[in-house]
Amino acid sequence: MTPPVPRQLAELLNAPHAAARNGAWDAFMGEYSKLLLRTAQRASSSRDDAMDRYIFILEQLQEDDFRRLRAFTADGRGKFTTWLVVVARRLCVDHHRSKYGRPQAGHEPTGANSVAHAARRNLLDLIANEIDVDGLEDEGSLHPDAELLSAERRQTLTAAVAELGLGDQLLLTLRFEDDISVEKIAPMIGLQSRFQVHRRLRHVLEQLRRKLIDRGMTES
């Protein structure tokens, strides 16, 4: 079912004349200014910066007869507050870029490299922490070149992770690469509570452990 357009938004977009529009904007701000301000604050390092971004968000939302806000009705799915936070956050990013420029290409890993990078950086830590990979031993454990062995393990782990379902890969990324708490992850992957995230994580890690053993690693 298509969620209804919030009353304050509908009144704003349908205001017949300038006076009505001003009143509707005030009502809209009465409802959503706190959310917009919080979004600006979270994207900023100082109070002045936050206020700059907040003002920028308001200007951009009003631009071209509320063009951005009118876009919400184009799809109609999802909650308006969720949509508004994403729009406001992206305006904060635009504001930052207009002030400081875009980051140089190559600073952020992208695409498949990102996955591999993340895997190299975090997933071995994850395994070590969660299923005690240090306690796992394979045929190469006596190999003098520990670095090579470590690289092989990482490769094995990356391959094992790639076999997981998308949702489980995302869960691992959110938890171990982005370091997001299980409580916050729950709604991001459609689970209702932190308990469910914990259970899902345990299940995924157990799967990974089995996959590693299948690939020749054995528990010591």
Binding site: L35, R42, K79, L84, V85, V86, R89, D178, P187
Partner: peptide, 11 residues
């Protein structure tokens, strides 16, 4: 993450 957290306040 931001939308989930801040949007949830509204919800």
């Amino acid at each position: 993450a931001e939308a989930s957290e801040l949007g949830a306040v509204g919800r």
